[in-house]
Design a protein around this nucleic acid. Sequence first.
RNA 1: GGAGGGAUGGCCGAGUGGACGAAGGCGGCGGUCUUGAAAACCGCUGUGGCCUAGCGCCACCGAGGGUUCGAAUCCCUCUCCCUCCGCCA
Length: 426
Amino acid sequence: MLDITRIRKEPEAVKAALASRGEDPSVIDRVLAVDERWRGLLTELEELRAERNRVSKEIGRMKDPAEREARIAEMRAVGRRIAELEDQVRQAEVERERLLLSIPNLPHPSVTVGPDESHNRVVRKWGEPREFDFEPIPHWDLGPELGIIDFERGVKLSGSRFYVLRGAGARLQRALIAWMLDVHTREHGYTEIYPPFVVKEECLVGAGQLPKFADNLYHDVEDDIWLVPTAEVPLTNLHRDEILSADALPLRYVAYTACFRREKMSAGRDVRGIKRVHQFDKVEMYQFTTPETSYQVLEEMVEHAVDLCRRLQIPHRVVEICTGDLGFTVAKTYDIEMWAPGCGEWLEVSSVSNCEDFQARRANIRYRPEPGAKPRFVHTLNGSGLALPRVMIAILENYQQADGSVVVPEVLRPWMGGLEIIATAT
RNA sequence: GGAGGGAUGGCCGAGUGGACGAAGGCGGCGGUCUUGAAAACCGCUGUGGCCUAGCGCCACCGAGGGUUCGAAUCCCUCUCCCUCCGCCA
């Protein structure tokens, strides 16, 4: 959520920033109109309430019954007017809130301006694509042949875009989760969190998924509860409606969760394999920081994610997302992509973003710079560290051998009971 | 799922519909005293909003409605927590 005070003060700058991400800036004029109406009504309302408070106190002390009755009658009328105004103020508030919740975050000035993903910029690359002396095959062939990914039975159980991991495949995923959590907690300074996988509606509003992206979420109507599309949602809301002390910052959390996405918007895209599915696992990094440090932290978090890619010895690149391709809640984002030689594409295994105070405003997360000082909104940052199915794809396709077996990356072997090669189960 | 009890400031805990943004205590901050510290004593100690910017006004006692000139206090609905019983990974 943008700061209404800032919109009042510099509407033109805000509009220009929105336009740079391809958003219609006219919403700002509508917000300002409602805001002005709201302020007018509020002033009138508060004057009447002040009068009623004052006179009501007098009535309590009054002896003369006639004057008392007269005053009560007067205040009855004032009360009716107050009720009317309260109604109008509430309506204006609801409308202003609705508009504010629909406006995306503003890009950071350092972000490249561009209309769409074609203007994203590769800022770093690591590793060379491996030379194969055979034709590398995609994971959707490799996995079933090894008996570690079962697409048919996934569909049988739950429908399209679901799959079953089996044997060493399931084990590999579990190893990756444990390994990533261990690296982040032991070496990168994060505290491990195990959150609920379902959350209340207000959590999704706080983190920015609602009201705009309900389409992409699973919702249990009976209990009015939502499956998390990412651990970012519960992690953001851990400190909803809290005032943190400055010396607690930065707070660094890492959480493994399953993630659930309906992918209605992407019908027909990436239908093969496990690149885009309704349920996947992810290890998520999350930080609450001061405004002064958030951009430095953004770079650190990219490094934390890249560190995992490097240890896995998989070629990857860091991409800076341009204004037109930014997510709703985000001021700046880097994606990290691993090369997948089987399907022949760069796979987004991580997206690391600074939301600045956008989520903090929605979820009302503040900190006190020093004892006695006024609370300020924190900055929040999130980053995958990493998304599992796509890392699995990259491992299978990069480490495949001519005979169809897959070498287990060395760093994972301690988490795989020493297993060195995944070969067809007998 | 059944029965009962509860929700007040950072925490504990008072609060007959009118002087209550809220007693008292704890904690925290500042001061006096002290070589220093502790103790004692004194003072301060919530958040948000409005424009007229005042040592102003408004709102907030789990949430939302209602009664009333006036609600922390009375009524209704909801949420959450606790206790007992049942079921149960």
